[in-house]
């Protein structure tokens, strides 16, 4: 990602950990010495329907705190994809979970990755947000891989650290299949 600021929108269903993912990404960017603003949906829709976290990262001062048009869009649920895929530009990197069928399409550079399935295989569906962060970061180089690891491990409870460390790596491998072990 060469643009500055970079606008990131992380979307999915309430309970998939998108807001936690947003906070982790923001903390990783801060560890890299960047300025960052993180916002989220707040209220009933964040608990039942679709949930969204936004992160803006810049080397300079960030004026407007919310995403206008995302440079990177993550959708972990069909409902979120339907809601947010129309709000992108032609160059937006759109990363969809493989549970979202090929009939769902739109503008932007669309990449489909089995993030939820990978989380399940790694040890728990709840780690889908961390798998997604690993994958997104490998695709974009938003933050340094070390900062992402530090931010994830600082945020998750002790008993889930091993799972989340594995989830980052699994996400990174997903986004670079050539490096994946046979």
């Amino acid at each position: 990602m060469n643009s500055d600021p970079v606008q990131v929108r992380l979307s999915g269903a309430g309970g998939q950990g998108l807001i936690t993912a947003g906070v982790i990404l923001a903390e990783a960017a801060l560890l890299d010495g960047k300025n960052v603003v993180q916002t989220q949906t707040y209220g009933p829709e964040a608990r039942l329907g679709s949930s969204k976290a936004e992160v803006i990262i810049s080397a300079t001062t960030i004026a407007y705190p919310q995403v206008t048009v995302p440079d990177i869009l993550l959708c972990l649920s069909l409902e979120a994809a339907k809601k947010y895929m129309s709000l992108v530009h032609h160059d937006t990197l759109v990363v969809l979970d493989s549970t979202i069928g090929p009939e769902v399409t739109g503008r932007g550079r669309i990449v489909r990755l089995p993030m939820t399935a990978t989380a399940v295989a790694t040890g728990g569906k709840m780690a889908a947000n961390t798998v997604a962060l690993g994958a997104l970061n490998r695709l974009t180089g938003l933050v340094s891989p070390e900062s992402l690891r530090r931010a994830v491990l600082a945020r998750v409870p002790e008993r889930f650290r091993a799972l989340n460390a594995a989830a980052i790596e699994a996400g990174e491998r997903l986004a670079s299949p050539a490096e994946a072990p046979a």
């Binding site: 923001a26 801060l30 300025n35 993180q38 707040y42 705190p65």
Partner: peptide, 10 residues
């Protein structure tokens, strides 16, 4: 306001 209240910034 609500947005500033819940917005995270460094």
């Amino acid at each position: 306001d609500e947005v500033l209240a819940h917005m995270r910034e460094n």
